[in-house]
């Protein structure tokens, strides 16, 4: 059954959802493309998930569930992605007396892990269309997010609006299809 597959997929994603939201994007992509959603839709979905309220992994789960079965699948996917995190926090509060882990070593190992996860995400989602307008927008977003303190939200909305309003005109001017 499809809903069980979705529950299992998002449960697994929840288990390794370490680091700030962006590190899990590559893992989600590997698990859902092309089975539940295609590459192009996935990029738009992540952009929407980032520019709406809420954690990126949860939002992605809600949207993929919605597109693959509707309301109850969306709810199941959303709950599945947080089951493991919630249980692990509860377990840790009760097991803290028995297990002593080094907090610094945990944090350092997760930092290494999350940078590697983001490198994998970048590789998996590197622009493949060859559309120079979209590549220029990715480079602009990098510059904005890496070197200014402007909320990345504005890069997402700005790029979307620019492509919606002026995309065809720019491509016609450059003499490329569209």
């Amino acid at each position: 059954m499809q809903i069980l597959e979705i529950i299992w997929t998002f449960f697994k994603i929840g288990v390794v959802s370490f680091g700030g939201g962006w590190s899990i994007v590559g893992i989600i992509r590997n698990e859902v493309v092309p089975h539940w959603i295609n590459e192009q839709e996935f990029l738009s979905l992540i952009a929407v998930a980032q520019s709406t309220p809420g954690p990126i992994a949860l939002n992605a789960a809600t949207m993929i569930g919605w597109e693959n079965g509707g309301f109850f699948t969306a709810m199941a996917a959303t709950l599945s992605v947080v089951v493991f995190p919630v249980l692990s926090i509860l377990a840790a509060t009760y097991l803290a007396r028995f297990i002593k882990l080094r907090a610094i070593a945990i944090n350092e190992s997760l930092k290494t892990g999350s940078i590697a996860m983001m490198l994998m995400a970048l590789w998996a989602l590197k622009p493949s269309s060859g559309d120079p307008v979209l590549i220029a927008m990715a480079l602009g977003a990098f510059a904005l997010a890496a070197f200014t303190k402007i909320n990345a939200l504005w890069a997402i909305i700005g790029s979307g609006a620019l492509n919606a309003i002026a995309g065809p005109a720019i491509r016609a001017f450059l003499g490329i299809g569209g």
């Binding site: 994007v25 952009a47 929407v48 622009p127 602009g140 979307g160």
Partner: peptide, 12 residues
């Protein structure tokens, strides 16, 4: 949506 999605690799 295409334009919004295009910035995702840049943000990563």
């Amino acid at each position: 949506l295409d334009g919004a999605g295009a910035v995702v690799p840049g943000l990563i």
